[in-house]
Every structure is written in C-alpha cells, then in structure tokens.
Amino acid sequence: MNIDKQPTTSYRWETFSHMADIGIRGFGNSPEEALIAVSLALISVITDPQKVSPTSSVSITCQDDSYDLLLYDWLNCLIFKIATENMLFSAFEVELRLPFLRGTAWGEIIDREKHTPAVEVKGATFTELFFGQNDNQWIAQCVVDV
C-alpha cells in the first residue's frame, strides 16, 4: 500500500494507492507535524517537493469544529492557492488550536521546465479522510481527486 516514503526527523509522508486517484498521508508527533507532512504528500502528487524553492509565501486560515474538516479545508485551501497563485509549495508552518488553523506555505511560481508538473489536483475528498492519533502518532490523510 505505502509506496513513497520520505524519511525525516520528526515527520514523514507517503502516498497510497487508490484506483482512479491517489491517497496522501502524513505522520507526525503533533497534529501540526502531520499537517505539514500531508501537505508535502499533496505536493508530491504534482512534483517532487525538493524541486520547489521556498522563496515566497501565502497565508491560509481555516476554521472548523473537527480535525478532519480542518484537514479537508487546509488541503483544499492549498489546492486553491496552487491554482490561483500559480504556485507550488515545499515548506509549511501551521498553528492549530481548534477550531482555528492558521498557516503559511512557502514556495515559488510554477516553472514547467523546472517542476515538470505531472497532474493537477482537483480537490481533497472525504474518502479515507482521517486526522487523529494512532499508536502515539498523529496521522493526517485523504484521497485527492486528480
């Protein structure tokens, strides 16, 4: 199932198979770390996050009553920023205190030569949507429609 792991110090991400689309998953020691990790997994669907220089930033604010809806909103806000700012991201900072999520995503304008973007992400979905603790670690995941 897990096909694309990236080892990091305190968080890691992976993608997982879904027949038509693709699943993204982030692990961390805190909800914030899991969010950062799943955000990198989202970018990996489009391009290798290591190809993206974190030179400029966008701010994102979400508000919701539950962790999983915040995850849905956060990912869809990132997808919106990718589309409207024409940017890809590789570094994130988030502050989560239910019901608020405030974050900053750093990245750069899409360069088709440099990033060779594989596919456009249409939206984060409720399929396999989970944001919570499992075995003492935080997991944030869902399937994204491409």
């Binding site: 809806l69 869809n76 997808i79 919106f80 589309a83 409207t84 939206g123 429609d145």
Partner: peptide, 17 residues
C-alpha cells in the same frame, strides 16, 4: 476546470456538515 472542482469541494462539505 477550476470552477467545477471548487463547486464540488464547497457543496460536498456543506452536504456532509
């Protein structure tokens, strides 16, 4: 394109909630 995707995102959530 983006408009349809965003309508889907917006209303899916509203219907779930």
């Amino acid at each position: 394109r983006g408009l349809g995707h965003q309508i889907g995102t917006d209303y899916l959530k509203e219907m779930v909630v």
